[in-house]
Design a protein around this nucleic acid. Structure first.
Lengths: 234, 234
DNA sequence: ACAAAAGTGTTAAGAATACACCCATGT
DNA sequence: ACATGGGTGTATTCTTAACACTTTTGT
């Protein structure tokens, strides 16, 4: 059944790999909304539609290098500004060019208050609330859903929220960030109790005043890095 | 910095993708040992060393198709005999040929009492206990460790053990399977209590007699498929 | 004084853990 | 009768979930 391909593969010089692409789901958190970075496609297929920033991975280039290059070139985002990047999944998908099949390695990137830097090369990069996505090219909506699932589950067993929040934040901001991503309300007292028990936060001397209400203490993460929690969160 | 590659990528006919390979970690459970399928490499690099069954993914072929083809051809394992297959991770790794870089999509396959069928094409496929692996080619030891981690965590929130056990088994066999994979002893009464509470098993009329001891009731999984548990197991 | 968000404890129910003896069978 | 593995229940601790009022500030 697969004999033909098998023979082809024995002659090394006749080996033709599939097209390999990299697509990246970059999230940020603005106004208690989880937002995803999209670009508008300039060419066929799906010309004019919104899509995840992605492109070809070339020989000699790791998929992470390709991701950085594409993100900078097409979307004006410097990878080193992202607090966290991880691989999601590898999809067998439709090719970027019309001839058939491609393999796409997908990544998720998380940043705080990142903004795309427009340049000649970028393709109208913009952030959209995940609640309100435009119609997307390829299978990119499925990839974004996959990324949201991954992010949600990571919230419960890591301090990954660290990558999305400013370095100082109030406990209410922390809670509303969780609520925005999980998509459900959390009990204020239980939330604070659990977070204090996890011993991840350090209180600062600073307070945030806003409007006519009691000032809120500002906190930071004690260890400015991603870590797994001993006990899962929610 | 990346300008050269960026330009190359704009001319479609000059695009050369990296080598794309697929490597598969096939597990079975024999004599309360988790075993992994390896083949002995016939050619350089790493000639003579043990390795995961893997090979090139060709244009027009999905990674799953490549996995099935390679598993059948090099290791004599028919993918449809595996109860469960899932993608693990995609590694940027050393190439199978000496020139540099390759991208390897890895899969995990689980089967019950599977045996490699040797043929002219197969490369000495054999199962090894994960406790006692030979020295392995490439980064394959790291891939196996990754697969074991994935399998361990899936034990706690799915009925994935179903894919490794015979269709009928005693509760003691079920428990020792968990213990073999998790690598630690479990309390017999608590184990049975939790498993009964999960409502996954159906008692059969059959009993297993062995030696001079009370016969044990045989159970099956009520739904012969992989499912996620409402409450995590351990 | 009031509006607005910050902050704080207790109780009840459920889940996880530790633990030891009797049962059915073959020899 | 004894050796072998099969099978069962309870008490304790810990975790989770539900729930409402006081405090601090600005206007």
């Amino acid at each position: 059944m697969w004999h033909t391909k098998w023979c082809i593969l024995h002659g090394m010089h006749t080996y033709t790999p599939p097209t390999l692409t990299v697509d990246t789901v970059v999230f940020r958190l603005v106004d208690n909304q989880l937002e995803v970075l999209l670009i508008r496609r300039g060419r066929e297929p799906f010309a004019g539609m919104w899509a995840l920033p992605g492109g070809y991975c070339a020989a000699g280039e790791t998929t992470e290098q390709a991701m950085s290059r594409v993100l900078a070139g097409k979307a004006g985002i410097i990878t080193s500004r992202l607090e966290h990047v991880e691989q999601l999944y590898t999809f067998d998908t439709v090719a970027r060019d019309p001839r058939g099949h491609a393999v796409s390695v997908t990544y998720m990137g998380l940043g705080r208050q990142i903004e795309p830097e427009s340049s000649a090369a970028t393709q109208e990069p913009a952030f959209f609330s995940v609640q309100d996505l435009p119609e997307l090219a390829y299978d990119h909506e499925a990839i974004i859903r996959y990324a949201i699932d991954r992010l949600r589950s990571k919230l419960t067993y890591t301090n990954v929220i660290w990558a999305l929040l400013p370095t100082m934040f109030t406990l209410t901001e922390l809670q509303t960030a969780y609520e925005a991503i999980l998509g459900r309300p959390l009990d204020k007292r239980n939330f604070r109790k659990k977070f204090h028990a996890l011993d991840l936060l350090a209180a600062t001397e600073n307070m945030r005043k806003q409007g006519a209400s009691r000032p809120a203490r500002l906190y930071t993460f004690a260890h400015q890095k991603l870590e797994s929690l001993d006990k899962s969160f929610d």
